[in-house]
Design a protein around this nucleic acid. Structure first.
Lengths: 253, 253
DNA sequence: CGTTTCATATGGACTAGACCAATAACGGCG
DNA sequence: CGCCGTTATTGGTCTAGTCCATATGAAACG
């Protein structure tokens, strides 16, 4: 059941858009049903053509409404299979020093990790700039896919300087990378930088997540520094935009 | 000039989608031009019908590409006027104790505030729950619109408990509210909670921002607490999703 | 019972129109 | 010069189709 968001009371109701366009009316009706719990997560919506005959609207109009709901994260599509009600998003707190495994588990969900590739390769100039090494320096590059309840939610590309973690790639990377860096290589992260913004999922990421290229996503870029200010780990995470929510709880002074 | 994002090297290039659908090809072409700086912020794109004849695609296809770019925050629409290249987003750091006026100015932009309405009214039950007062208790409710470089970027609804700030509404609210609460009422905020997630702009918010209802937006909910754990201020901000970016820089330990 | 084959339904992509409402440009008027 | 009404242009919305690739499930097969 999608948890009722206690913060919302500006919710659009059926009455508040009496004369809106058709696609918004349909959006509202579906959204209403989802929020009421009549359509639990994972439920498949009627097919577009079915909605077409039910509502009497053209298919383009139907798809407009569905795309809208997709942008809001209420539903998602499975290619040539149908539209499904989204599971609740996990809450991510960038101020907490907790890895994916930790916070997903804490929220009663089941995390999963899959290493897609790992290699040591020369750094492109953009990467070299970030690590402040010479272009062409060999770096560890890891691609992983991470799941929540068996649904792929993000694909990430991690880069680590071999100078700090030489034989990193010989370890199993299907768990917590942070864990390995700390316990095996004695790396002490003292600073963490996180940057988030909406993006379109590029083909590479979209394929790995099993969504169509161009789907809206959220790019989370994390950079970790050690005590000497060196970049320890650089991580680009491409999230399904409906799978993550940001929450910060901050004590001042 | 849209600042080149130093973090991106998974950028989609023209070659990386050789056989993609037409609308993605058009998306790529426009995105490429924007990122190269050929289309500076504020530039108006050719009209949909113009693009139609230029590309030979149907209008629906053109609009698909434009909607895609809108979802990424690269362009925005002005109703019945045209599509324009978005100005750069401001960076918001929820861990910093800085108000809108401060961080917008720091980033070389010009902030603006407009009070849409202010009133004292009985609290609906959802609001009463948050403040832990009896439903129907009179609360201060403020609606404001905030601009960056004269472009409306957010509309907010603020609720303040009159028990803590009795004659708040007699002050000018076109500046920093935090400032007033601190200096006039001696309120000491010690805890701040921020929650962010994508949403569709409800009619009320969309109208105030001059966008069409249902446009993708970002809802930022901020709750401030004082030393005794009382809720001082509750604020729902509906942002244009292309106007804000989240950045957290965190020192561990 | 497991595997393969195949028909069907589905979403993905696209076309070629239509009508409307609001904007913006223009031209005339005071 | 500024104001106002007219008009062309623009995006907003919608229709009614077409063709395609593939996910899915049922039927046939081994």
């Amino acid at each position: 059941m999608r948890p009722k968001n206690e913060f919302l009371f500006w919710t659009r109701t059926r009455e508040s858009v009496p004369d809106g366009p058709q696609y918004l009316a349909l959006r509202d009706q579906i959204a209403f049903n989802i929020e009421m719990g009549d359509l639990p997560p994972g439920t498949r919506l009627p097919s577009e053509r079915q909605l077409q005959t039910e509502t009497g609207s053209a298919r383009g109009t139907i798809r407009e409404a569905l795309s809208q709901l997709e942008a809001e994260g209420l539903i998602y599509r499975r290619d040539r299979s149908g539209w499904y009600v989204s599971p609740p998003a996990v809450t991510y707190d960038p101020t907490r020093w907790a890895g994916f495994m930790t916070y997903v588990t804490e929220q009663g969900r089941t995390p999963g990790t899959e290493t897609l590739s790992k290699e040591s390769a020369p750094a492109p100039s953009a990467v070299a700039d970030i690590f402040r090494v010479a272009p062409g320096t060999t770096m560890h590059m890891i691609r992983r896919r991470r799941m929540i309840d068996d649904r792929p939610v993000l694909v990430e590309r991690i880069i680590v300087d071999p100078a700090l973690a030489p034989d990193l790639l010989s370890h199993s990377l299907d768990g917590s990378l942070t864990q390995i860096l700390t316990s095996h290589f004695g790396i002490n992260v003292t600073r963490n930088r996180v940057d988030m913004h909406p993006c379109a999922l590029v083909k590479e990421a979209a394929d790995a997540l099993g969504v169509k290229s161009g789907t809206p996503g959220l790019l989370v870029v994390r950079t970790s520094f050690d005590g000497e200010g060196r970049v320890v780990e650089y991580d680009q995470e491409y999230w399904r935009h409906d799978a993550i929510r940001v929450h910060v709880d901050l004590n001042v002074r």
